[in-house]
Each structure stands twice: as C-alpha cells, then as structure tokens.
Design a protein around this nucleic acid. Structure first.
Lengths: 105, 105
DNA sequence: CTACAAGTTCGATGGATATCGAACTTATTC
DNA sequence: GAATAAGTTCGATATCCATCGAACTTGTAG
C-alpha cells in the first residue's frame, strides 16, 4: 500500500543516532529544541526560537535539525513553524531526546 | 572538608551537557564509548577501543572524552586504560548516556 | 644499557560547518 | 500593484576539528 504523498507533507525518517546527536550538540540548535519542547504543541514560529544570530544562520540550523529528523516544517496561517518530532525521535531512540530535554540547562 | 588530592587521581567534573553531547556525536568516539560499555568494569586498554585510525588520532579522541568527563584515564600494571564514568555521567544527566548506549547501532 | 612497545604531544593540513550579507520567494497589507 | 515582513537560498569567509606523521616519554624485556 502506497503512502499518500498528495499532501506533500513529506516526513523524512529520523536519521542515524550519530546525526541526531550531532544536530543536538550545537548550542544554537539545542536552544531551539528546548524552546520547541516548551512551546504549545511543540510548535513555534521560527523567529521565536533564536536570538543573537542572523535569520539566514537560523534557517541553516533549522535545515540541519530537519534533515536529522528532529523537527518538521509546517505552514500554519501563512506563517512557517517548526515542530519538534518528539514521538518519532523517541520511537527511534527511546529516552535520548527526553533525557536531554529534562537535563539541567 | 578537603578532598584528598595526594593520590593525584584528579577526577574532573562532568562537563556541560553541550560538551558531553559533542563528545558523543563523533562516530569514532561513540564507538570507543560503546566498546568501553561492553568491557569488563567498563575499562579497557586504549588499543582495543579503535580501528582504522592512527594512535595519535585516537589519543586526541581520548582527550576529548576525558575533558568532557565521560571517561577517565588509569594506569593498571603499566598499561594505560580508559574507564567509562557511567555513574558520574548518569548523576549529572540522568538517562542520557544509558539511552544512547541502549540505542540500536 | 639497548631495544621495543604503548601513548602522548606537537605542527601542519584538509575538510566540515557556523556565520554573515545580499538576493530571491511568498504572503499579507495598504 | 507597491510595500513590507518572514524565510530560504546562495556565495564567501573564518573557525573549528579530525587526521596524520614525527618526535618525545615511559615502562618493559632482553
């Protein structure tokens, strides 16, 4: 049975553990993930997820997180949002993301 | 009460989560940590912990792991060994190391 | 004491990547 | 439709770091 791709929601699989760890090892990206985890529905507009860097740099980090399968891009009401794929990452590597997020800052 | 430093065992504290994640995000180092976890007493001679790289490179990775507080160097019977500081890392960031180690390779 | 083995340290090098600014895309608003 | 706002893409740059080889240290064996 084929997946219905007509919605173009294209959710990529969570990457190798190595890639997930590398994605989370950067301070800017870990902060983004932490803010997402604190947000309603683990979803937030891009601009709320970073400070002190240019938006092109932020966009680069979003891409890195997405390619690792840690986040997903979605458009709601014309605005681009990022969503933390908590369940998918948990499914692939149980405890990894949640233990990191519950660690002291 | 002062700690007794006369034994020169100098155990540094586990580093910031960022540093621990960065240490584990490298494929060579993660493999080293996995082999340590599988070893008796979580301890092994350096040469058993890597393949396919020069020993100077390996030494560099050992240093990175040690400075993150993930491993400890000890000398047993004249041979240098690395020991995984499982309990210390668990104490600092509960679940992080163990969930990574129990993740599929 | 000499030779060898195991690790470390030191420079040097190449590749990866974090960062920026500018140009482009796409919506929304006036 | 022009103007603004939010993100992305693209080049360019600079820094970080994984890797190597060579020299050094230390301990063991002969």
């Amino acid at each position: 049975m084929e997946a219905d791709l007509s919605k173009s929601s294209e959710l990529i699989p969570v990457g190798p553990l190595q890639q997930v760890l590398a994605a989370l090892a950067d301070p800017v990206r870990l902060e983004m993930v932490r803010r997402l985890a604190d947000a309603e529905d683990s979803t937030a507009a891009c601009s709320l997820l970073y400070d002190g860097i240019g938006k092109s740099t932020a966009s680069h980090h979003f891409k890195t997180l997405r390619e690792a399968g840690v986040t997903q891009r979605l458009v709601e009401e014309g605005q681009t949002h990022q969503r933390l794929r908590t369940d998918d990452v948990e499914g692939a590597y149980p405890g990894v993301l949640t233990s990191i997020l519950s660690s002291p800052r």
